[in-house]
């Protein structure tokens, strides 16, 4: 089953990086959203996949009674999902604000910090 997961992870990475290489911030943003899923699924698969048995101990026992899914990657991913969402929201607002101020969504035209015709630095003292 891991092989199928690896294929899906590979596809997620490919698509997200392809979107990242675009010049339009909206596509880059969607790439960022997919990248989060790709990384989460990568961690999930690296902890091995187990079907349908959540890592929950029944109330009357002290330890799980059968083989359960690996809880550790789940704990890592749970917080990662929320954090990647906050960052996605931040990037979204950043891109939106940039669009409002610069009136473009093309990253080639967003050159306030590194202008094309940058004046040479002064040579005096």
């Amino acid at each position: 089953m891991e092989a199928l997961f690896a294929l899906l992870v590979g596809a997620l990475f490919t698509v997200s990086i392809y979107l990242f290489l675009s010049k339009h911030i909206i596509r880059i943003l969607m790439g960022a959203a997919i990248l989060g899923n790709a990384v989460n699924l990568l961690i999930f698969t690296a902890g091995r996949v187990t079907r349908e048995v959540p890592p929950i101990i029944p109330p009357e026992f002290d330890v799980p009674q059968s083989v359960v899914a690996n809880p550790l990657p789940q704990a890592l991913i749970l917080t990662a999902i929320v954090i990647s969402f906050s960052f996605f929201a931040f990037l979204l607002v950043l891109g939106y604000r940039a669009y409002q101020d610069l009136e473009t969504d093309d990253s080639d035209e967003m050159r306030v910090a590194e202008p094309v015709d940058d004046v040479p630095p002064p040579l005096g003292y």
């Binding site: 959540p54 929950i56 109330p59 749970l78 917080t79 999902i81 929320v82």
Partner: peptide, 11 residues
């Protein structure tokens, strides 16, 4: 003790 918690609840 069951699926759930602060993150999910908060969302």
């Amino acid at each position: 003790n069951e699926p759930g918690g602060g993150f999910i609840g908060g969302l």
